[in-house]
């Protein structure tokens, strides 16, 4: 090996790494041996400096009362912006009607009938009318037709509602 190794290779040899050929070269080359000794001296200087107390300015800078990491602030700000964007994206979607227009029209019609029925009822039948109203609304929600007094004579199927359960649900 004719060419002398670079500093990196010499440092590798210094820590015990490196190839046998490089090691042999350093042992035979006076210049490389001197360079290796310089690395040893540098490490000794570093060692002496680190055995002394750290400089005062470094200790001051290491005070725990320092402000938060700037990176943390950026991360927090980013998370807040992401939350706000998610809210803006989710909310309009939640308000969008899920039913088709015909279903909606049918619901409105059934609900109106139920309300009209309630208005036409006599005061002494308030409880019944309220139950019927609830049943009608319940049927409108589930898509069926509420049972009425006429249904006792009719053969058409109706949707009997458990009024109590519905009322509790509301």
């Amino acid at each position: 090996m004719r060419e002398c190794p670079d500093e990196g290779t010499l440092e590798r040899l210094f820590v015990g790494e490196g190839r046998a050929a490089e090691q042999r070269h350093v042992e035979s080359c006076r210049e490389c041996a001197m360079r290796l000794r310089r690395i040893e001296r540098d490490v000794e200087r570093i060692r002496e400096a680190l055995f002394a107390d750290p400089p005062r300015e470094l200790v001051r800078r290491a005070s725990p009362a320092r402000p938060l990491r700037p990176l943390l602030g950026v991360v927090a700000l980013g998370a807040a912006a992401a939350c706000a964007a998610a809210l803006l994206w989710v909310r309009p979607r939640a308000l969008e009607p899920t039913e088709s227009p015909s279903e909606l029209a049918s619901f409105v019609q059934t609900a109106s009938q139920a309300l009209l029925l309630a208005v036409e009822e006599e005061p002494d039948t308030t409880v019944n009318s309220r139950e019927e109203q609830l049943a009608a609304l319940g049927a409108a929600i589930t898509g069926g037709r509420p049972c009425t007094l006429d249904d006792q004579l009719d053969a058409e199927p109706c949707d009997p509602q458990d009024v109590t359960t519905l009322a509790q649900g509301w």
């Binding site: 500093e7 820590v15 015990g16 540098d42 490490v43």
Partner: peptide
């Protein structure tokens, strides 16, 4: 041991650069 030597090599290289002892 190989990992130790690699870390050591990098550390020494970095520290020596600050001393001006390495090109």
């Amino acid at each position: 041991s190989g990992s130790v030597k690699r870390h050591l090599h990098r550390a020494i290289g970095h520290l020596r650069r600050t001393l001006g002892g390495r090109a």
